[in-house]
Amino acid sequence: MSADLVRVAVDSERCIGGGQCEMLEPEVFLVDDDEAISSVIGSGELPRDRADVVVHRCPGAAISIVQPQRPSE
């Protein structure tokens, strides 16, 4: 089985700091303490299915998939 890796990004204008992304994928997203804006930490890569869930659950519709990556082994 292989899972497609994709890269995700946060639109800081739309982010409301709801923290859903940090809850679902704490290795990839962190909400800033002061501005309460989420940003991508690390590579920003996620398997496609998990990226879809974060996009689906983001209350500000601020997360998007920006770049499909090559399939992992």
Binding site: R14, I16, G17, G18, G19, E22, M23, P26, L30, V31, D32, D33, D34, E35, A36, I37, G60
Partner: peptide
């Protein structure tokens, strides 16, 4: 307005905090 007000307090309510 909602985004501005929400971000004023949202930092205290993130999973980490």
């Amino acid at each position: 307005d909602h985004t501005r007000l929400r971000r004023m307090v949202a930092g205290a309510f993130t999973p980490k905090n």
